[in-house]
Computed example of a mutant assay.
Amino acid sequence: MPDAPEYTPYSVYVLEPHANWVTAENGHIPIEAIAERVYGKPYSSLRGCQRDDEHIPNDSVKLYELTSDEDYLEALEECDDPEVYLGWDSHTRESVRKTGMTELDYWLSIRIADENTPATVEANPPETQDLENAVFEDRFFADRAFSPSLKLVLADLIRRGELPRGNFLFRHWW
């Protein structure tokens, strides 16, 4: 057909937060397992996805487009941005930001208490509290307090050669 539109095919990779649900047949990518291996600590892809879209509903999916050079380079710029958004301060009516470190560096500085290191922050700190080098009593509270953007983590993992370039679909449900 001479008038048929031309389409550019591209791959969409499905991110699976639960590594034990990834099989050779479904071809899903175990994003939390890859991130934990690379960064040396557990990563909550659900919290990261909610950081990108805080109003994402249950039983939904979010597409991260990182196929084009423009989208990928924009994500890398955000990944390397030495500023972290900490939240909205209702008293001063201003956004609170921390400069001098990236979201990944900030997240990597947050730890979980163990027998040698006691917790240094309460379970539910105020949203705008600076948590650099904070130690939480367990992972649940650390993930709730701060998880980096899933888009930034994907861009960093692509840059490191851990994931292929492409578009990624995050399946979100509970």
Rank of each mutant, 00 (worst) to 15 (best):
D3R: 06
Y7P: 00
P9V: 14
P9F: 13
S11A: 11
V12Q: 10
E16V: 08
P17G: 10
A19Q: 13
I31R: 02
I31M: 06
I31P: 01
A33R: 06
R37D: 12
R37L: 11
Y39I: 06
G40E: 07
L46P: 01
R47Q: 11
G48W: 02
C49H: 01
C49N: 02
Q50I: 11
N58S: 10
D59F: 12
V61H: 08
K62N: 06
K62M: 15
L66W: 04
E70H: 11
E70M: 12
D71F: 08
E77M: 08
E77Y: 07
C79Y: 07
D80Q: 12
D81A: 13
Y85Q: 03
L86H: 05
H91E: 15
T92Q: 11
S95E: 15
K98V: 05
K98T: 02
T99Q: 14
L108Q: 12
S109E: 03
I110H: 08
I110V: 13
A113E: 14
N116G: 13
N116H: 15
P118E: 14
A119L: 09
T120W: 09
T120C: 13
V121N: 00
V121L: 01
P125L: 13
T128G: 08
D130A: 06
N133W: 05
N133T: 04
R139H: 05
F140H: 10
F141N: 10
A145L: 03
A145M: 03
F146C: 02
K151Y: 04
L154R: 01
E162H: 08
E162A: 14
L163R: 00
L163K: 01
N167I: 11
F170C: 02
R171N: 14
R171A: 14
